[in-house]
Amino acid sequence: MTWPRVDGLRSIEFGSPGAVRTELVGLVLAGAKTATAGLLEHDYAAEGEEVEHVGERLAVLDDSGARVATVRVTEVRVVPFAAVDDAFARDEGEGYEGHEDWARSHERFWAAHAGVAVRADTPVVCLRFVLETGA
């Protein structure tokens, strides 16, 4: 299963469908959310997708699957779960003070929505991006 393509771009969907996705897309559109994380094995390998690359443009999809914006990837790092730093956690724009808040939230999310129990060495894809205007 591959990610949807929209207007020739790979798509990116934030969080789980419903209120969470609506909130996260709102943070992206407001410029508050400039980073996101995914599990290398679950979100990429199992989906048959390659990790994004710097400069890649992604179609941001809302809860209905419609393209609402475009982001351009500015940084890609694959790090162990325990190595996600405080700055990255804050750049996710969801009010995390640092790694500990981020880790607790993401452990719960990935357990509930992906059925994955993360460990300290679980590979996490950390993306930073900028919102493109007029796209």
Rank of each mutant, 00 (worst) to 15 (best):
E132V: 14
V130G: 11
G15K: 04
R67N: 06
R21H: 08
D101S: 10
E50T: 15
E92T: 03
A111F: 11
A32D: 10
L27A: 10
A82I: 11
S64Y: 10
V6M: 09
V124G: 00
V130C: 09
M1C: 10
R21K: 13
D91R: 07
E50G: 14
A45V: 15
F14Q: 01
A112L: 14
L29M: 12
A89I: 01
R77F: 03
F109S: 02
G38D: 01
A103Q: 10
A111W: 11
A46V: 11
P4Q: 13
P123V: 06
A117S: 15
A46P: 03
G115R: 11
P123T: 05
V116S: 03
W110I: 04
V68C: 10
G15F: 02
R5L: 14
A35Q: 06
H53M: 13
E23G: 03
L39I: 13
V124L: 07
V116T: 12
V76G: 04
P4E: 11
A82C: 11
D91K: 04
G38Y: 01
G115T: 09
D121C: 08
H53N: 12
R72C: 07
E100D: 15
S64D: 15
S11H: 08
V71S: 02
A120L: 12
F109A: 04
A30I: 07
V6Q: 06
V124C: 07
L127S: 01
L9V: 08
V125P: 02
R119M: 09
L58F: 10
G55P: 06
V84F: 04
E56I: 06
A120C: 08
W3H: 11
E41N: 14
A89S: 10
E107K: 11
R104C: 06
G31H: 06
A66P: 02
A37D: 02
T70D: 10
G8V: 08
E100F: 05
V76K: 04
T133V: 14
C126G: 03
A45G: 05
R57D: 12
T133H: 14
A83V: 05
R90T: 00
D63C: 09
E47G: 06
T22F: 01
E47V: 09
V84T: 02
S16T: 14
V124M: 14
E75R: 14
V28K: 00
C126L: 12
A82F: 04
A37W: 00
E49S: 08
L29S: 06
T70L: 02
A66Q: 15
A59I: 03
V73S: 07
E13W: 04
A89K: 00
D63L: 07
R72G: 01
E94V: 01
R67G: 04
G38A: 14
A37V: 09
F88E: 00
